[in-house]
Amino acid sequence: MEQQAFLDTLKAEGYAEPVRVHREPNGSLADHAHPFEAKALILAGEIRIHAGGEIKIYRAGDVFHLRRAEPHRESYGPEGVDYLSGRR
């Protein structure tokens, strides 16, 4: 997805202004959940989301969505990851 289309989608769906997130190469976050719903556009690098017994890999141009309070863990590729995250 192109960045402007993503921003337009966030606005239409009632998300707050997105924040840019950077995670370091080969890093990870242990099991956790957020008190908000998140939709994110990968700008560069790679993130693996472990949720619901599945592992999904997202790369530049991909969008991932996490429900409010959805338990998950994250791991990042050898270049880390940069993404825009809209929250509501």
Rank of each mutant, 00 (worst) to 15 (best):
E2P: 00
Q3M: 14
A5P: 05
A5Q: 14
F6L: 09
F6Q: 06
L7N: 05
L7S: 08
K11E: 15
K11Y: 10
A12C: 09
A12T: 08
E13G: 11
E13D: 14
G14W: 10
G14A: 11
G14H: 07
Y15A: 12
Y15H: 10
Y15Q: 07
A16F: 09
V19H: 14
R20S: 09
H22R: 10
H22V: 15
R23K: 14
R23G: 00
E24S: 05
E24V: 03
N26L: 09
N26Q: 10
N26S: 10
G27P: 08
S28Y: 13
S28L: 10
L29W: 14
L29E: 13
D31A: 15
D31K: 15
D31F: 15
D31T: 15
H32M: 11
A33G: 05
H34Y: 05
H34F: 06
H34S: 04
P35C: 06
F36A: 06
F36L: 11
E37T: 15
A38F: 10
K39T: 05
K39N: 02
A40G: 11
I42M: 03
L43D: 00
A44W: 02
A44E: 10
E46S: 06
E46P: 06
E46G: 04
E46H: 06
I47L: 01
I49F: 07
I49H: 04
H50R: 11
G52F: 07
G52E: 08
G52K: 08
G52V: 09
G53W: 12
G53P: 08
G53I: 11
E54M: 13
I57K: 07
I57C: 08
Y58S: 05
D62F: 11
D62I: 11
V63K: 07
F64S: 03
F64V: 09
H65G: 00
H65C: 03
L66V: 12
R67K: 15
R67C: 07
A69Y: 09
E70C: 12
E70A: 13
E70S: 09
P71H: 10
H72P: 03
E74W: 01
S75L: 01
Y76T: 00
P78K: 08
E79V: 00
G80Y: 04
V81I: 13
V81Y: 01
D82W: 00
Y83K: 01
Y83S: 01
L84T: 05
S85V: 13
G86Q: 11
G86W: 09
G86L: 12
